[in-house]
Design a protein around this nucleic acid. Structure first.
Lengths: 234, 234
DNA sequence: CCATAACGTTGATGTAGAACAAACTTGATC
DNA sequence: GATCAAGTTTGTTCTACATCAACGTTATGG
């Protein structure tokens, strides 16, 4: 096992205002894990033994209904916490986390969370902000699902991904991990067929370029106009 | 202004494990407010000067889209915190809170929150649990919106209200505050017309009894079966 | 007690998007 | 380089639910 040191986390907003020696202590209590693509970091209903910090890669958080339908709740980017069931007073994970590319994570024992939060108020407050932001985002999605039609929802979802993980290329802004029509459908509550049709239509209008597990947004502003319900017909 | 004392809050889960003297101190820093029916406790985008504890009544939390559409995010029951924007690192309220009946609330200055959370870890942890529960619930609604059809969503919404605020009567379980077809539509992302049709159909089947701003669930189990997608046709 | 606004019901029509079905493409694997 | 699976496209059909429209009912206040 490789030596872990504070440089892994010292730049993250979550750990600002904590003494270097303490950072070493915190990191010292973590295990570092590599999660191969398509493998899970933790599983829905599983015992919440740990909480995690994503250092590198990208993780999809999915809830599965009793009927077996999947809904993608959130994408995790590097620097974010995940699996903080303990902090929320739960003993099992409420969702499954799947690595969409090879990932590196730090894992702490779940029961360490209260201790860390008590000793480092900034850490506790940071977790609070994370959860708060996630609540905001989730409420926003409820609003979208309740008031927008599919085309706008898919457009919003793509723009969100672009903001979180967009990488500039010569064609436009590439969503920087493999993402299928099915994945987008699970984020927006529609079917892969409808997503496919939308992407084809947008490609014809020059808004996006897309291929197998790959989407590039060429004209973010036009896509945004569409997301806001001001499509070309308005 | 009436004298406030610890008995107002000492029984609430949120304040367990805090010394009586400290409870007096906490309550002493609060103002008590009466909010008349249909008036707001706080307003979306407004400066988050305070956070609140609902002592009595019922509050509807609503988000309004730029296009003016309203979505009900949550109902608050007595004993719950609301308007905790500060704890989530925000400076404005993300939604509007409307009293659906005459209410009594306690209000603390927003900037007091970090201090209380630091001095009373149980209080901080309790807030965390509140926010966590709200996140869970909101994610559940995203899943419902993504995977269920309107009839099931409305059934789930009614059952949730029954659980939170149901009062046993001789006809069944009454949702114990005035609630219109429009209100239910805003909770479930549909129209008042569709809600009206559903309630009429359910009434014919003997599942509910409803009238002007009033819904009584007569057969919770059958309604639950329906909510789970096992309607009479299955 | 009458006016009027708020709330609720019910019918007719239209359509977004799911469901069904089938073929095509692109990578992987032996 | 043939085979196979996973991902994608595209056409057709069908339906749940919104939308449009009108009318009925119950409260409220002058």
């Amino acid at each position: 096992m490789s030596r872990l040191d504070r440089s892994l986390i010292s730049e993250l907003p979550l750990f600002q205002g904590i003494e270097p020696a303490d950072l070493d202590g915190i990191v010292g209590q973590a295990r570092s894990l590599r999660i191969a693509r398509d493998h899970t970091v933790f599983d829905q209903e599983g015992e919440a033994h740990s909480f995690f910090l994503l250092l590198d890669g990208r993780v999809r958080v999915v809830k599965t209904t009793p009927e077996g339908q999947q809904v993608t709740v959130h994408y995790i980017s590097p620097g974010e916490l995940m699996g903080i069931a303990h902090a929320l007073g739960r003993t099992t994970y409420p969702a499954t986390a799947i690595a969409v590319v090879d990932c590196v994570v730090l894992a702490w024992p779940g029961n360490l969370w209260p201790e860390l939060a008590a000793r480092f108020p900034n850490f506790g407050a940071g977790t609070f902000r994370t959860v708060g932001a996630r609540l905001q985002e989730t409420q926003q999605r409820v609003i979208e699902m309740a008031t927008e039609q599919v085309e706008q929802r898919v457009a919003h979802a793509l723009l969100r991904l672009v903001k979180q993980t967009g990488r500039k290329t010569d064609e436009g802004i590439l969503i920087d991990f493999p993402i299928s029509r099915q994945d987008i459908a699970e984020m927006t509550g529609t079917t892969l067929h409808t997503v496919s049709r939308l992407l084809t239509a947008w490609e014809e209008k020059g808004l996006v370029r897309s291929g197998r597990q790959k989407v590039t947004v060429v004209e973010p502003h036009k896509l945004f106009a569409l997301a806001e319900g001001r499509g070309s017909k308005g």
